[in-house]
Amino acid sequence: MNWSVSSTFDRYSVPKTQQQGLIDKLNNGVAWDSMSGASPVRTEASRVGASDVTIERYADGSVVVSTIDAVPENPDDPMPASISSCRLVSSSNYHANYKNCYGNVEFGVIQMGFHFDRNTVKGKVGTITRSYGMTHRIIGGALSNHRLTKFSGSRVRYSADLSVVVKGLPIGWTAWMEVRLGKGSAAWTVHN
């Protein structure tokens, strides 16, 4: 699959009139609203297959798309294995263990994600038992020094050093995305 900025824009319905403006901003070294700490003007949440998808839309047209594998509220409910990578390996009335779950964030020119195993306990905050298998893509730059940092049993961050050259000058910062677990089967991503 050919991955490009315009295909990402088209997939998430960024108006053509805003697409060129975003590309021009990037070429001139101006960060998109989605990369500058601005607040989104609209957030859309939906279930796509067996994944929870959140699209944050910003005033300049940029988008951030966060995807995380969902798990059923009831551990006895089957997950459609062909749709979700999150696989139930054991369960009881009060807890369930899942392997190969996936969290992902797309920033337009950057994509970052990783796999994780998790335990859920009814009425308690879940635990990430293992994090691994980082994935990434970038257009017009490089990601290096990839690392997974476990801040707590329910919070793991994937960080990488981003470097780009704008008008002949190198610039860089740390890009990151994080998976967080809540009570029961709740899970979501956050990002910078």
Rank of each mutant, 00 (worst) to 15 (best):
S90I: 01
S92E: 01
S92T: 02
N93S: 13
N93R: 08
N93F: 08
Y94H: 01
Y94L: 04
N97Q: 07
Y98I: 01
Y98R: 00
N100P: 06
C101N: 02
C101P: 03
C101R: 01
Y102W: 07
G103A: 13
G103E: 04
N104P: 11
N104M: 14
N104Q: 14
E106M: 08
F107D: 09
G108D: 09
G108R: 02
G108C: 05
I110Q: 13
Q111A: 04
Q111C: 02
M112H: 00
G113P: 03
F114C: 10
F114L: 07
F114S: 11
F114H: 06
F114Y: 06
H115A: 09
F116A: 06
F116M: 04
F116Q: 03
F116W: 01
D117H: 01
N119A: 08
N119H: 08
N119D: 10
T120R: 01
V121K: 03
V121E: 08
K122C: 13
K122L: 15
G123I: 02
G123Q: 07
K124A: 13
K124V: 06
K124T: 06
K124W: 12
V125N: 02
T127H: 12
I128N: 05
T129Y: 00
R130M: 05
Y132M: 12
G133K: 06
G133F: 03
M134P: 07
T135Y: 08
T135H: 11
T135P: 10
H136L: 04
H136T: 05
R137P: 10
I138K: 10
I139P: 12
I139A: 15
G140R: 02
G140D: 04
G141K: 10
A142K: 14
N145E: 10
L148C: 12
T149F: 15
F151N: 15
F151P: 14
S152C: 08
G153T: 03
S154E: 07
R155I: 07
R155Q: 15
V156G: 13
Y158L: 09
Y158N: 09
S159P: 08
D161E: 09
S163Q: 04
S163R: 02
V164G: 09
V164A: 13
V165S: 03
V166Q: 10
V166C: 11
K167Y: 02
K167F: 03
G168W: 01
G168N: 02
L169P: 04
L169K: 04
P170K: 06
P170Q: 05
P170L: 05
P170R: 06
I171G: 14
I171Q: 11
